[in-house]
């Protein structure tokens, strides 16, 4: 009934859900690029998918700027403004990781060695799964607020699992007979993929703090 009085707040809410939608799209493109071309970075789709990932990552930045502009137009309480800005900035770092990983593969003509493939796939799948849970958590924060703590625990488990795989992959790399330069290249890639779940964990904990702050 009084919805017209809170137009800006409703716009922010809509933009946040748009951001989540855009995040999912970027994640899908990144995932397609990584899985379809992991063995051959020169496959026909890789360039296109990398460009598309960049395009959607930029769109995410635009949505973030739009949210910030609205919030500086005195919509929302200062505390909420700060929380939302930090949350989105934090989630945005993950999109940045997606883009960097694809550019690293493209720019350095990186091919993941066969003996590392199964574990790398496992690391990648778990990282993507943690991203899905994080997006669910953000949606929950702006809707029912139910189950945020459980999601924090699930993400934490996945992050630990990813750390474990990451360490094991690094051992495999340096136990192998690959050239030192290749070892360093692949190590850097594995660390970057591993960073995804670390950043997701940070976002997830931030969401939990935002929720806790609103319990009197």
């Amino acid at each position: 009934m009084f919805g017209f009085l809170f137009k800006k707040q409703q716009q922010i809410e809509t933009l946040i859900f748009n951001y989540i939608k855009n995040f999912r799209k970027t994640q899908k493109l990144f995932s397609d690029a990584f899985t379809s071309c992991k063995a051959d970075p020169f496959c026909s789709n890789f360039n296109f998918l990398t460009d598309q990932t960049h395009k959607y990552e930029s769109r995410g930045d635009d949505i973030r700027d739009e949210i910030n502009d609205l919030m500086y137009g005195k919509a929302l309480l200062p505390e909420s403004r700060e929380d939302i800005m930090r949350l989105i900035a934090s989630a945005d770092k993950i999109l940045g990781h997606f883009e960097k990983i694809l550019h690293m593969i493209l720019g350095q003509h990186l091919v993941i060695p066969d003996f590392l493939m199964p574990k790398t796939e496992e690391l990648f799948t778990s990282s993507m799964e943690s991203c899905d849970l994080m997006l669910k958590q953000i949606e929950t924060l702006f809707s029912t607020q139910q189950g945020i703590r459980e999601l924090v625990a699930d993400i934490d488990l996945l992050e630990s699992h990813c750390d474990h795989i990451e360490r094991s992959l690094l051992r495999m790399i340096f136990d192998s007979t690959l050239e030192l330069a290749r070892k360093m290249e692949v190590k850097e890639l594995i660390l970057m993929v591993g960073d995804i779940s670390d950043q997701v964990d940070r976002v997830s904990k931030r969401i939990n703090i935002i929720r806790m702050k609103r319990i009197v």
Binding site: F6, Q9, Q10, I12, E13, L76, L77, S80, D83, I84, L141, F142, S143, T144, Q145, Q146, I210, R214, I215, V216
Partner: peptide, 16 residues
Amino acid sequence: GAFYNRLNLTMIQSDI
């Protein structure tokens, strides 16, 4: 505070 907690509001609703 007790009443507010029971409302289980979203972040934006709580803000409003």
